[in-house]
Amino acid sequence: MTFTEMTPRRQEQMMAFDRLLTIMDELREQCPWDRKQTLDSLRHLTIEETYELSDAILENDLPEIRKELGDIQLHLVFYAKIASETGQFDMADVLNGICDKLIRRHPHIYGDANGSRVVAETEEQVKANWEQLKLKEGNKSVLGGVPGSLPALVKAMRIQEKARGAGFDWDEKEQVWQKVEEEMQEFKAEFNADTQAVIDQQRAEGEFGDLLFSLVNYARFIDINPETALERTNKKFIKRFQYIEQQARARGKSLSDMTLAEMDVYWNEAKKEA
Rank of each mutant, 00 (worst) to 15 (best):
M1G: 08
E5D: 07
E5G: 05
P8A: 05
E12Y: 07
Q13N: 09
Q13Y: 13
A16L: 08
R19P: 01
L20P: 01
L21G: 04
M24Q: 15
R28V: 02
E29P: 01
P32E: 11
D34Y: 13
R43W: 13
H44Y: 12
L45I: 15
E48Q: 11
T50M: 10
Y51C: 11
Y51Q: 14
E52V: 09
A56R: 10
D61H: 10
D61K: 02
I65P: 00
L69H: 05
H75K: 13
H75N: 14
F78W: 13
Y79S: 08
A80E: 01
I82G: 01
M91T: 13
V94P: 01
N96W: 11
I98A: 09
R105W: 12
P107M: 02
P107G: 00
H108V: 05
Y110R: 04
G111W: 02
D112N: 11
A113F: 03
E124V: 11
L133A: 07
G138D: 04
K140G: 11
V146A: 03
P147H: 08
A152E: 05
A152D: 03
L153T: 06
L153P: 03
K155T: 02
K162S: 11
A163L: 15
R164G: 08
G167H: 01
F168S: 10
Q175K: 05
V176P: 01
K179I: 10
K179A: 10
K179R: 14
E182Y: 14
F187A: 05
K188T: 09
E190P: 02
T195D: 05
D200F: 07
D200E: 06
Q201H: 14
E207Y: 00
G209N: 07
L211W: 00
L211C: 01
V216G: 01
V216S: 00
R220E: 08
N225D: 13
N225T: 07
A229G: 09
R232H: 12
N234S: 12
F237G: 08
F237Y: 14
E245N: 08
Q246V: 12
A248G: 02
R251P: 00
K253R: 14
S254Y: 11
T259Y: 04
T259L: 04
L260H: 13
A261F: 07
E262D: 09
M263S: 07
V265F: 09
